[in-house]
């Protein structure tokens, strides 16, 4: 899944969304749909997300770090294992990440809707290159 350079490359891709905040999930869903993606989810917790990962072929994923009382890292670990590129989304900044994902691509909340697609494509490209 490498070679993504901008938002246009996202069209037709199957992107998993894991986000517990209802409105943010809806917005990401809208943004991805507008970019021509096929949205898988959104999932609000780890167990739902893992079910989706297991049952859907995926081209990429957008993961919110904090899911209520849970952290998204088990999902990230599974995606890494399956070589599915993903980016984190968080309002906290890099400090929210564990050591293992210290330099993993991340999109800060709130988003810049116009550049979200480019940011996501670049993030997924970098994640695919390093992951």
């Amino acid at each position: 899944m490498t070679g993504w350079t901008d938002a246009k490359d996202l069209a037709g891709r199957r992107i998993l969304v894991v986000e517990d905040e209802m409105f943010v999930a809806m917005m990401i869903e809208d943004l991805l749909r507008n970019l021509g993606c096929e949205v898988v989810g959104p999932a609000a917790n780890v167990s739902d997300a893992l079910k989706l990962v297991a049952t859907h072929p995926l081209d990429g994923a957008v993961l919110d770090v904090n899911l209520g009382r849970e952290r998204v890292f088990p999902v990230a670990d599974t995606l890494k294992r399956d070589v599915v590129p993903f980016v984190f989304v968080t309002g906290y900044g890099p400090s929210a990440l564990t050591q293992a994902y210290d330099h993993h691509p991340m999109i800060r909340k709130p988003f810049e809707p116009e550049s979200f697609g480019d940011d996501l494509a670049a993030g997924l490209a970098r994640a695919g290159a390093t992951g």
Binding site: E21, F23, V24, M27, G91, Y92, K109, P110, F111, P113
Partner: peptide, 8 residues
């Protein structure tokens, strides 16, 4: 942050 994201 959540509220802002929600509003957005």
């Amino acid at each position: 942050k959540n509220t802002l994201a929600t509003l957005q």
